[in-house]
């Protein structure tokens, strides 16, 4: 464990301070069964959140990310009745809409937390849009994206930061 941490620390020294800060709330992940080989990328891979209530989590190779909406957002939206999914190969910049969800007469844009190219939309949502309400940060994911610049992850909030952010909204 100590070795892993030190590798992570080494990586932190060559990346920005924000990445190091992001490393802290990963505690929860250490407690889960875990088989990733390079802990140095854990900080970068850790789930990040935007102020628009999307989350993104990178794959183990750090090249692709899974995007969804937060539990907080899913609760605020109410019952999701339709999800407009992005098509594969859609190129987006961070903050641009990749689709929309409809709930309670509202069409709400879903924006990409990072720039890149959409690889896949979650087809489960076509038939069962309510999956977003039941498991927004798991099986209710919305799209997978080929991340253009994983450095953009650093501008996002970590789990703790996002929790504080949403508490500030209430």
């Amino acid at each position: 464990m100590a070795a892993r941490l030190s590798i992570a620390r080494a990586v932190c020294q060559i990346s920005s301070r924000r990445t190091c800060a992001a490393f802290r709330p990963v505690r929860a992940q250490w407690q889960q069964p875990y088989s990733r080989s390079f802990s140095c990328s854990i900080a970068a891979r850790a789930k990040k959140y935007t102020e628009d209530h999307e989350w993104i989590e990178l794959s183990s190779d750090g090249k692709t990310g899974t995007i969804g909406i937060s539990t907080y957002a899913a609760n605020a939206l109410g019952d999701v009745v339709y999800v407009e999914l992005p098509t594969s190969d859609l190129e987006v910049k961070a903050g641009e809409a990749i689709g929309a969800v409809e709930s309670v007469k509202s069409a709400s844009d879903i924006n990409s937390p990072v720039s890149g190219k959409i690889i896949e939309g979650n087809s489960v949502l076509e038939e069962k849009p309510g999956t977003i309400n039941n498991d927004p940060e798991g099986s209710g994911w919305i799209a997978k994206i080929e991340v253009a610049d994983s450095g953009e992850m650093e501008r996002l909030m970590d789990e703790g930061g996002y929790k504080e952010f949403t508490e500030g909204l209430e």
Partner: peptide, 8 residues
């Protein structure tokens, strides 16, 4: 009757 559009 009401309808909504929410963007970023």
């Amino acid at each position: 009757g009401s309808a909504y559009k929410l963007t970023r």
